[in-house]
Design a protein around this nucleic acid. Structure first.
Lengths: 344, 344
DNA sequence: CTGAAAGCGCTTACAG
DNA sequence: CTGAAAGCGCTTACAG
């Protein structure tokens, strides 16, 4: 057939199997095949079956680029988190992916390293891929970053915090309430001189600090000299160093609330090394309940945050928003749980 | 203009800024605008400038779906790793993303959880997005998974191991040589009854075990009764339990090579709890040099693996393959480094 | 060095 | 419930 030869000569055909092949195989038009495969209702069930069988027989796989171009909606969800080296975010991501993938979405993961400029760059980059949805960590960002999100019109759910502002979707917990609770636990163990040791100083750490202050002020035991704030990133080594610094500066300290378990584990190991009895002389608490905290000597008292549940709920909320459904309430507080172990 | 009205009425126009708008603004044809923006050579530099300025002025962002459809090549690279809760893979990923993103690629990250079926499902899912490149962990996979990769024709680089087989691209290190080296270090510290404690039992752990056996056989000190193999996933808690089991079974053991630092840290903490002197009565070594290993009591002797370098080199190699360039050699061995600390 | 035409593989909007 | 036409926003292949 000369027509086919001509086509072949000038063609840019990729040789790939297309919807047209499936339609031909099933004896229907491409549009019907498209509808049958997407599960659009209002197609004769017999035809749906025929098309599905034809697609399976030919091992047909739809082209996401063509689909995205024609429908103006991609299968991408962009997820921005500060760090992957924190088990918290790993658990969060795992839950997000397990929820989104069965729904046909693929995640674009961006790591901001707690850097506002990097977050902005990632946002610009990922938004250029026209994702159908957006998951970001926390509520605070640069005005430019916030404007980028708003201007994109892409549905967005904020992770790890709870939001009061209208039109802001979020799933998380009250970091401040959790910080208050663990401090109250320390007070209940008859400690008065309770220190706060924080690093990284991202918004959630500062909210925990606020909770700590609340609890101590209520007990009339707040002492700013017991707050040790370090902007460097958290690590076991930093936790150890900060405990030593605290002990040197305030030998009278009776308890420490480390803003996360990495720091607390390092502090616990330093106490062991220095021969500081825990909890005898010093009670120690952490935050997040990370791997290994239950193996410390003594096991670490901490706050368990429901990150898997947060990931699942946030992804589910986003799925609804992407379908254009109304979501109520816009903000979900999934709480926290005190895990009391030997260190307090 | 009635024509425009007609267009508007029937139109599916997204209202987005297109290449045609940029071309009009710059006073050139869309093809020229396309070429100018993509940096195709053979375009008048003056025109390139004019188009770039027009694009910037209008804040034009190309549509990746249209680009992918027209050019038959996506901007995606799929990356498959076993776990995100292992710092090793986090460092690897970070390096991969930092290399790939500036080149205009976006990564699709898939976590297999060391599950062959899950890897296959992820592969199928991500391959459907027609990525331009593929990065997978290790060389061993199910025949179906390997066939999927081969049939896709997508350039693929294997991570963490070195490959002997032709046509297999890989960047990593000899896990076996590293396992042998750390065992020889233990032998050099005049230990004879050296145990191997392994979990997860993925191919790389088994290669380390092979290196351990090699070293012990060469020294005439191999004793199968000192091998403790546990298929469960690694964790500090498991390391502690396995050390206790080992000590109960073989009180005469003089040294332990844990197949990774998670296990070794747990073992070290258990030894501390049990009052087993390290390295006095028992020498302990790990693998990977993870965060916290230098903070243990005593600090953990381990093997540092160059995962950031591996990530960077593998991504660079993939970039070449995606450009259709020849890559020589196909397999890169980036080595390892013994980190001797207090535990041996 | 530049451009008019055609096409990538889907889905939308309309008509029947 | 089904389909012919048009279009999504780019790039390829060809011609000049």
């Amino acid at each position: 057939m000369p027509h086919d030869e001509e086509r072949q000569r000038r063609s840019r055909a990729t040789g790939r199997l297309t919807l047209a092949d499936v339609a031909r195989e099933a004896g229907v038009s491409p549009i019907t095949a498209s509808r049958a495969l997407r599960g659009t209702r209002g197609v004769d069930p017999a035809l749906v079956l025929r098309v599905q069988e034809a697609a399976a027989r030919l091992h047909y796989v739809p082209d996401p680029a063509a689909r995205a171009l024609a429908s103006a909606r991609s299968a991408h969800v962009a997820v921005l988190i500060p760090l992957l080296s924190n088990a918290l975010f790993v658990d969060l991501l795992d839950a997000v992916q397990r929820t989104l993938m069965p729904a046909g979405y693929v995640t674009l993961i961006g790591v901001t390293h707690y850097d506002a400029a990097e977050e902005e760059a990632l946002l610009r980059n990922y938004l250029a891929h026209r994702p159908s949805g957006l998951l970001v960590t926390g509520l605070d960002r640069t005005p430019d970053a916030a404007a980028l999100i708003a201007a994109s019109g892409v549905p967005c759910v904020h992770l790890m915090e709870t939001s009061a502002s209208a039109g802001q979707y979020s799933v998380g917990l009250s970091q401040q309430a959790a910080g208050r609770a663990i401090t109250e636990h320390l007070l209940a163990a008859s400690r008065r001189r309770i220190a706060f040791v924080g690093a990284q100083l991202d918004p959630r750490v500062l909210q925990r600090l606020e909770g700590y202050r609340e609890a101590l002020r209520a007990a009339g035991a707040h002492d700013p000299g017991l707050e040790l704030l370090e902007p460097a990133p958290s690590s076991l080594a930093l936790g150890a160093r900060l405990l030593e610094r605290l002990l040197a500066r305030r030998p009278d300290v009776e308890a420490v609330f480390f803003c996360n378990d990495d720091l607390a584990q390092g502090g616990l190991l330093a106490a062991l090394r220095l021969g500081v009895a825990v909890p005898g002389r010093l009670a120690v608490a952490g935050f997040n309940d990370l791997a290994g905290s239950d193996q410390m000597l003594p096991p670490l008292t901490t706050v368990r945050t429901p990150r898997a549940e947060i990931g699942r709920a946030a992804a589910t909320m986003l799925l609804r928003l992407m379908r254009g459904e109304a979501v109520e309430p816009a903000s979900l507080d999934l709480g926290y749980e005190l895990v009391v172990r030997g260190s307090t």
